[in-house]
Computed example of a mutant assay.
Amino acid sequence: MKPIMIAPLCLTALLGACAEMGTDVDPILDGPPTMQFQSDLSACRNLARSQSQLNHETMAAAAMGAGIGGILGEVDDEGDALGGAVAGALAGTAMGLSEASDTRETIVLNCLRGRGHAVVN
């Protein structure tokens, strides 16, 4: 398989694997959950899922990773610019997805706090 075809396939697999990341947080409560907790948790998770993981920050991280990887691949004696760019783009995308996952988790926790639940974490 050509290297140019591997990058989109890896990116698609990475995005698919991360689709629910950040929304599946199990919050720790200070005290027993109220009767409304499960309903609020579901609503807050849905709110977090509505936040795209492939946002500007993720795309910028992928572009920066591709640029840095391409440069490093070009200056390496045994490397090539395309391979470095592909590896850099995948690393940048993974970093951006991780940050988006953290944002989604924060949305769930803050949403629950806003609905009156004593969320510790």
Rank of each mutant, 00 (worst) to 15 (best):
D26Q: 11
A19G: 06
T106Y: 00
I6C: 01
D102W: 02
H56L: 13
N121Y: 10
G116P: 05
L82R: 09
L11C: 07
A85F: 07
G73Y: 07
G83H: 00
E78N: 15
A118V: 04
A19V: 12
R49C: 09
Q38A: 14
G73N: 04
M1H: 13
E105G: 11
D102I: 03
R104Q: 04
G16F: 04
N121M: 07
G114F: 02
N110D: 14
A7Q: 11
N110G: 02
D77P: 11
I28R: 10
I28M: 09
D77Q: 15
E20R: 14
T58I: 07
V119N: 01
G67F: 08
G22C: 07
E105P: 02
C18H: 12
A66Y: 06
I4K: 09
H117W: 10
Q53G: 15
D26M: 08
A87L: 14
A94G: 08
G88L: 05
T103M: 13
D80N: 15
L82D: 08
H56Y: 09
A17K: 03
S50F: 01
T34Y: 00
A48T: 04
T93N: 05
I4E: 14
L15A: 02
D24Q: 12
E57I: 10
S101K: 06
M64Q: 03
G114P: 09
E20S: 13
D77R: 15
D30C: 08
S50V: 08
L97W: 06
R115M: 15
E105K: 15
G96W: 09
A63Y: 08
I68R: 04
A7W: 12
D102H: 10
A94I: 04
G22A: 09
A43M: 11
N46S: 07
T106L: 12
D80G: 15
A62S: 12
F37M: 12
A100T: 05
T93R: 01
G96M: 06
A91V: 15
E105C: 05
T12A: 15
N46R: 11
D40G: 08
C10N: 01
A100S: 13
Q36A: 14
A81H: 06
L9Y: 05
G96Y: 08
A91G: 13
L41G: 10
D40L: 05
Q53E: 07
L11N: 07
L47D: 10
E20C: 09
H56P: 00
E57Y: 13
G114A: 04
K2Q: 14
G116Y: 01
P32M: 11
D30G: 08
S52L: 06
L11I: 15
A60V: 04
L47F: 00
T106S: 14
D80I: 00
F37A: 11
A66P: 05
L54K: 03
G83S: 09
A48N: 05
N110C: 01
A89L: 11
P33L: 05
L72K: 03
D102F: 04
L11F: 12
S50Y: 09
R104L: 08
Q36I: 01
Q51K: 11
G22S: 07
G31S: 03
A94V: 02
A89I: 07
M64N: 04
N46Y: 01
I4C: 04
D102M: 06
A87K: 11
S50R: 13
